[in-house]
């Protein structure tokens, strides 16, 4: 009764979009994992990355893939500046302060974007072909976006597990004072981690833009804040590879609930919007995860 091609294409979409979700969540999780700060202004940085790709490609003809490192660099600089301007004094502060501070930064960036670039919805077309496989159309640009996401996750994983920096970060996370005693510059580790987290988030915004190519507007990041939180909670706050696994798992959840809502719509002849309901289902999944397994599905 269900078209096998539809199922196959849903699986492919779930995998591709799951990688994008994974890299977005990674940006959130680096900041939380090291600084214990929940970046509530997350969506604004995603939006920023999308705009960077849009402008560089549309106005200067830069290959969208090359905009990813540019976004990362801008995000890195921004995160570094944010740390020294504000968050340095908030490490270890009551949660209320850091939550409100990240929220305020998000609102600031979002509103400045609206004033600078207008609230118009923008989009671009970057067509590099389509792969036809067993009746399923796979858009190459989406595949390229997903591969870029995997590359970023792999890079971060390497950085955190195989380098001196990674070792220092783990020492700081375990015991900041102990790390200080053995000569680690804890302040710098925090600064670089925040820079890295924001850099990955903005780069993730670029990857998202390559994947979607549409719907770029100042408030586009808000729904992704919710999604990234759902995925981060599933991953276990602060987990690196967990972000990717949970991202892909969430991709499948989304695809499955989309199929389910579509079938309900057709079977009962209801006037509903399956995709929008999928977004709502994400929220209920979040509550359910918090209720049953608040420490995350991929912890240890």
């Amino acid at each position: 009764m269900v078209d096998p091609a539809l199922v196959l294409s849903s699986v492919v979409t779930a995998l591709l979009v799951g990688c994008i979700y994974g890299v977005l969540t990674l940006g959130l999780n680096i900041v939380f994992g090291v600084l214990r700060i929940v970046n509530v202004g997350f969506g604004a940085f995603v939006m920023l990355g999308a705009y960077i790709t849009y402008f560089l490609y549309k106005d200067y003809g830069v290959n969208p893939l090359l905009t990813i490192p540019v976004s990362f660099a801008i995000g890195f600089a921004l995160g570094y500046a944010m740390y020294y301007a504000a968050f340095r004094r908030l490490v270890g502060a009551p949660e209320l302060s850091t939550l409100l501070a990240t929220f305020a930064v998000g609102v600031l960036i979002q509103e400045l974007a609206r004033i600078a670039w207008s609230p118009d919805i923008r989009g671009f077309t970057w067509d590099i072909g389509v792969l036809e496989l067993a009746g399923v159309r796979i858009v190459y640009s989406k595949v390229v976006a997903a591969l870029s996401a995997l590359a970023v996750v792999a890079g971060v994983y390497y950085l955190f597990t195989r380098t001196r920096f990674g070792l220092a970060v783990r020492a700081v996370v375990q015991d900041p004072e102990g790390a200080m005693v053995v000569g680690i510059n804890v302040d710098r580790i925090y600064a670089v981690s925040m820079a890295l987290g924001i850099g990955v988030t903005v780069a993730g915004g670029s990857i998202l833009a390559i994947y979607l190519q549409q719907g770029i507007e100042p408030y586009m990041g808000i729904p992704y804040t919710l999604l990234a939180f759902v995925i981060a909670v599933m991953a276990g706050l602060g987990s690196i590879l967990g972000s990717l696994y949970a991202g892909i798992l969430f991709g499948f959840f989304e695809a499955a609930s989309f199929l389910a809502f579509s079938m309900i719509k057709d079977a009962l002849g209801l006037d509903i919007l399956p995709y929008v309901l999928t977004r709502s289902a994400a929220f209920f999944l979040l509550l359910l995860t918090l209720l049953l397994k608040p420490e995350g599905l991929f912890r240890r």
């Binding site: 939380f32 214990r36 929940v38 509530v40 949660e95 209320l96 939550l99 808000i222 729904p223 804040t225 919710l226 939180f229 759902v230 981060a232 909670v233 706050l237 929008v276 309901l277 977004r279 709502s280 994400a282 929220f283 209920f284 979040l286 509550l287 918090l290 608040p294």
Partner: peptide, 17 residues
């Protein structure tokens, strides 16, 4: 705290969608 904030940030959109 953090988990509470995360849960509530979804309330808006969850109900709206």
């Amino acid at each position: 705290g953090a988990y509470f904030a995360i849960a509530t940030i979804g309330v808006n959109e969850g109900i709206r969608f």
